[in-house]
């Protein structure tokens, strides 16, 4: 344990009064969020509300300007060391998959374990196959991403993130770039992940998924968290009027 970790952090994610600007645009306003280990959080909101920015701050893809962000006991600062530590334990799945096109699916999965965690080639190979089987595309292991369908690519991306054995998974609109018939296979994969107790923060419009899996649903608008409730209350009796307006547009 080094000076950046504190043993008594009961929160997996602890955001305190976080602010962020893009130039003059105030994207995150005094965001305070606490997530326990094993919780599954769905974040929703209109486009431009800052929901993507929020989770991207959690693994250092975006830098916050004020406030504190503590992930897994490590406080995110501008120092590369803290960011690297967090990124080793947090996996991320992108809207555009972002698989490495010049590597096979298997190589995509083994790259980080070999280079970052210094896992041996054989061990990384087995690990990758294990997760590829879990997401049900082990037969595509030798293919290049360009040869896979969108749903298969996203599942491969999930497997790639899982190969680092993360404590927490971040999903940034994982199904938004998929054709409708492939959304279900990805969502099913994510549901099975949820059953394993891994902490999940998911930005998505898929409300059915939220109802099924989430412990809490968060509504964010204009950079502020306006609603934070368990799904039942959230959908049945949202407190904030903007939440109601948003839900009426999204659920029809």
């Amino acid at each position: 344990m080094n000076e950046h970790e504190r043993p008594e952090s009961q929160f997996h994610v602890d955001m305190q009064a976080v602010n962020k600007w893009f130039g003059t645009l105030h994207v995150l306003r005094d965001v305070t969020l606490k997530v326990r280990r094993g919780e599954r959080i769905v974040i929703c909101g209109p486009s431009g509300s800052g929901k993507s920015t929020l989770i991207r701050c959690l693994n250092g893809l975006e830098a916050h300007h004020s406030g504190r962000i503590v992930v897994g006991g490590v406080e995110l600062t501008r120092e590369v060391k803290t960011i690297d530590q967090v990124r080793r334990r947090v996996g991320m799945v992108f809207q555009q998959f972002n698989l490495f096109p010049h590597l096979t699916v298997l190589e995509n999965c083994t790259l980080a374990p070999i280079r970052v965690k210094k896992v041996g080639r054989k061990a990384a190979h087995d690990l990758a196959l294990h997760y590829l089987t879990r997401v049900r595309i082990s037969d595509q292991a030798g293919k290049y991403p360009g040869e896979l369908s969108g749903g298969q690519q996203q599942r491969a991306a999930i497997a790639r993130a899982l190969c680092m054995n993360p404590e927490m998974m971040l999903f940034d609109e994982p199904t938004s770039a998929l054709d409708p018939e492939m959304v279900k296979e990805v969502l099913n994969t994510m549901v099975s992940l949820a059953d394993e107790g891994i902490t999940m923060l998911c930005v998505t419009h898929e409300m059915g998924f939220a109802r099924q899996v989430a412990n809490r649903v968060i509504f964010i608008d204009g950079g502020r968290i306006l609603e934070d409730n368990e799904p039942d209350t959230f959908f049945r009796a949202p407190g904030h009027e903007r939440t109601r307006a948003f839900l009426s547009q999204v659920l029809h």
Partner: peptide
């Protein structure tokens, strides 16, 4: 090389030199 590639490499914890060598340069070379 698309921005997403570098972000994905970063999210996996790859250091900058590693990301350059294994993700960016092979694609850039083409």
């Amino acid at each position: 090389v698309g921005r997403g590639q570098i972000e994905a490499a970063a999210a996996l914890g790859l250091s900058r030199p590693h990301a350059l060598r294994f993700v960016v340069l092979p694609q850039a070379l083409r």
